[in-house]
Design a protein around this nucleic acid. Structure first.
Lengths: 121, 121
DNA sequence: ACGGGTACTTACCAAAAGGTGCATACTTGA
DNA sequence: TCAAGTATGCACCTTTTGGTAAGTACCCGT
């Protein structure tokens, strides 16, 4: 019954759209590592410490279906697959950089605020 | 034994930190509207169509505790409160701009990918 | 034949996020 | 006095997200 608003078909602003693509517990990390170059599944898993197979695969599939990453199956004798950023994905990573910078500059404030929320809940 | 990595205690990269602050179903929208200037609670609620009181208050509180927005209670006779961006919040919004731009440019691709996922699940 | 490595897949569960709706306390205007 | 508006709080429930643990199917070295 929340069916008003015939003018706004999807997103209120670009950021809104972008967040649909990059939010997910492991996605920023995955993008961070893939930005360094094509990476094999196992290698990626070892890089993104703490991720489970289920999660890694799931997030990779979503990124793939969003056109951000590309899966390459070499069809070789011992299984061999790798993941890389598409040009589209690379453009996203470029756009993310200022946000990375902001986060780096204020990492401590952010961490402090998170702690505050965690303890006083 | 997941106690490796003595250098980075919290975030893998700045983006990771930033996402803790801006993810939340209504936060980008809220920031988008607050960027236009201080806004009263009720006004904000009417702008962010579809949000419930609970959600709006919750997200505002989180943004406030993160130092992004400022709540001003004028202590007036008929209740009067408004919300605005702090300078810190304004710097965040500036850093978000490229991501907004990216999202705007690719809104259609993103929407298409979302549909694809929704229907084939 | 066995253990280990590759890249996944699946079923089941817990926790977090979000939504609905009612309650509060105070006001002003009809 | 009653309805409506202000800004919030709270209980309850559903949906979404994430985590655990196991299994698959293939290959390689010993």
């Amino acid at each position: 019954m929340a069916k008003e608003n015939s003018e706004n078909p999807r997103f209120i602003c670009g950021l809104h759209a972008t967040l649909h693509v990059i939010s997910g517990k492991w996605k920023p990390l995955i993008l961070f590592f893939l930005d360094k170059g094509p990476t094999r599944y196992g290698e990626l898993k070892r890089s993104v410490r703490g991720v489970s197979d289920k999660m890694l695969i799931q997030q990779l599939k979503e990124l793939e279906s969003d056109g951000i990453v590309q899966r390459t199956d070499y069809g070789e004798i011992p299984l061999r697959v790798d993941y890389s950023l598409t040009p589209f994905g690379a453009s996203l990573v470029r756009a993310m950089e200022p946000l990375c910078g902001w986060g780096e500059e204020h990492e401590e404030d952010i961490a402090a605020a998170m702690d505050r929320r965690k303890t006083s809940r």
